[in-house]
Design a protein around this nucleic acid. Structure first.
Lengths: 337, 337
DNA sequence: CTGAAAGCGCTAACAG
DNA sequence: CTGTTAGCGCTTTCAG
């Protein structure tokens, strides 16, 4: 079993060649005669040779690996983004290592450190909810490792971004609520330290303002990104006295929490309260009534982000003329509004 | 930016120490005096030193990395398994690299190769649907890299397994159908070259037999694991003349395809046809009517599989006294039956 | 076309 | 306690 793994030297020895010759032959270097190449290749196959990329990477001072950090892969959105990233990476013969932060800033930092230690060629991050310091990202950049943020951005860092049009998407869905005739529109907002939390709230306020409805602070509740936060948000609205006509939630899970809690309170959707989300999770189409939401093409986001990162890797020259790609969103109207 | 990364030598130079001394200091080796350690640590911090794990791995001839290959991470089941794996790996300071085969045997083989080349410490695989050769797995084992299969097993390979009790779970759900009074029970089966396809079919047949119902070949249709396969299966049953009372699908997506198609045909669930699945996907609870299914604790599977693998890594001695862990399943009765 | 020598960054064994 | 030497497997440069 643990028979030492085959190296270029082993195959060189058998062939009475120098091991550098073998190394060149394996990489199809023009120096080497076709005949030798054939012999080398044949023996490599026979001996079950597998090149050691660790040694190769050490020598070359580079890896063909991209690091990806997401809050959680069990989340339609992120897993679709990852697929997009992998698709692009795969086409360029890059590997991908996926890490989950579980929304913990600490784990995120640890992952960042091991990615640095493993000298990945570049990193894609969607920031954890609890991250309040950019030092891990800065460390990455000090090592000259390109960084691209997607979806959840850390603002104080100069880096490329790929985001969805959160403001526009939020504005659009709130306008839709207004058009439908709802007037008291509440917002179950995300954590204010996240870009998407802030931007979606901004879009909400913009829409109200544009239509002459004033955004009353009382109709905004800040929470996290989970179903439980939706449940809590509804409780908060109820405790503030009267219920709103409609609630726009920062994302689909929160909307789902509200959706369930509204029904649990014996109210009808959308008759008593309309509910809208953001993100178009798979599940949302299956709720009863199905959820009105905003679709953000996650697969596109992943492909775009990976492409940006690879561009940086290819041309490390460009100083930070950071770019931001905004992926458009699409309103998906269903029965909940 | 691309200022060469800091190495032990750099910090040794500044401190007028030998670089091996620094290396030891950094790893808190007992040889080194506390005073020196402090100086080294302080300067390492100041210079923003990050150990190069590539070099370390090359030297040590080992990595702290586990490879995981799954068909697709955008699948509740697999993403939960991965979380379980990561949890255990993380606790032992192992990294995890996740690869998706997209059900393609070819991609699976490529991933296997790069995992070998990267000298991962061990590999966890859930086999792609189209895999018909075990040569990639055998190559892995020839390199002395421990392998654990979970959920979808490749039979011809001697390796540890973690599977759910597919036969028992299938038998249980079919018995439930029988108890409910259904008599003509069809099975939308999986590909016969997959272990879960075969085992769930076996459980189905066992249950029928135990209750004196004969398994008529006509009520079994083989297909894949996707929603579309469910749609197709229903078409097949209809074309065979009369409809069954109840259909047990190899997994939840297939059940969902059937569920939707039944409703599209204007039939009522469960009045006209009962539908049951396997896997307890998140979505299944949200269908109308919600789907009766079998829960297989994916998080447990992941933890168990990772623990088995780590045990192999710790003690490479054990020749292949391969073990199989069977994780119990649980019947989840909902309104669709 | 093939061979020799050097070195990537780190660790382990041994000497001082 | 600190330094020396050697080497992990590979690639690169320069000679033959």
């Amino acid at each position: 079993m643990a028979t030492r793994q085959v190296t270029v030297k082993d195959i060189a020895g058998r062939l009475r060649l120098h091991y550098t010759t073998v190394s060149k032959a394996l990489r199809d270097h023009p120096d080497i005669s076709p005949a030798t190449k054939r012999r080398v290749l044949a023996l490599a196959e026979e001996l079950d040779y597998h090149p050691n990329s660790i040694a190769k990477n050490l020598k070359n001072q580079s890896t063909h690996t991209l690091g990806v950090i997401v809050p959680s892969i069990k989340n339609d959105f992120f897993s679709a983004v990852i697929s997009g990233i992998e698709e692009v990476a795969y086409g360029r013969e890059f590997n991908t290592v996926v890490c989950q932060s579980n929304e913990s800033a600490e784990r995120e930092a640890i992952h960042l450190r091991t990615l640095i230690s493993n000298r990945v060629a570049g990193v894609l991050v969607s920031v954890a909810q609890t991250t309040t310091s950019g030092s891990g990202f800065r460390a990455l950049q000090r090592q000259g490792i390109p960084l691209v943020f997607f979806d959840r951005v850390y603002d104080d860092i100069e880096a490329d971004h790929v985001v969805v049009d959160d403001i526009g998407g939020a504005r659009r869905v709130v306008e839709h609520l207004i058009e439908r005739g709802y007037r008291t529109i509440a917002h179950a907002a995300g954590p204010p330290n996240t870009s998407i939390g802030r931007d979606r709230c901004r879009g909400y306020l913009d829409a109200l303002k544009a239509h002459g409805l004033d955004g009353d602070e009382k109709w905004i509740v800040h929470g996290g990104f989970e179903e439980a936060d939706g449940t809590a948000a509804l409780g908060a609205f109820r405790s503030r006295g009267s219920m709103p006509d409609a609630i726009f939630a920062v994302n689909d899970p929160v909307a789902r929490g509200i959706h369930a809690e509204v029904k649990r309170n014996g109210l009808a959707i959308p008759r008593d309260v309309a509910v809208a989300g953001f993100g178009d999770n798979r599940l949302s189409a299956y709720l009863d009534p199905p959820l009105t939401t905003v679709s953000q093409s996650p697969y596109e986001i992943g492909k775009t982000a990976a492409a940006m990162l690879l561009r940086r890797i290819d041309e490390p020259s460009h100083k930070c003329l950071c770019e931001t790609e905004v992926i458009p969103t699409q309103l998906i109207v269903r029965k909940s509004t």
